[in-house]
Amino acid sequence: MQVTVKLFATLRTNRFKVKVLDYSSGTTILDVARDLDIPKEELALTLVNGISVEVDHEIRDGDTLSLFPPVGGG
């Protein structure tokens, strides 16, 4: 299945901004992070189609995944 993966802030370093990637069904966000060599502790905010989900959330075909390290502001 095809999933759009968007990376932000420091997660982009040596990786990419946005890519469409192929994953098999049953893949979780944590699996994607592992595939991209992103340590779990660097994942502070994980959105699927703009809605916050936990890292064990299973992604589906056509999802957009947005991954952020710890960030904040005001």
Partner: peptide
């Protein structure tokens, strides 16, 4: 993570993408 990494690296502007993606 926020005050030790995120804010020092990008300032408050780092929120643009988070808030837009939401």
């Amino acid at each position: 993570g926020v005050t030790g990494q995120g804010l020092p690296a990008y300032g408050t502007a780092v929120l643009v993408n988070i808030i837009n993606e939401s």
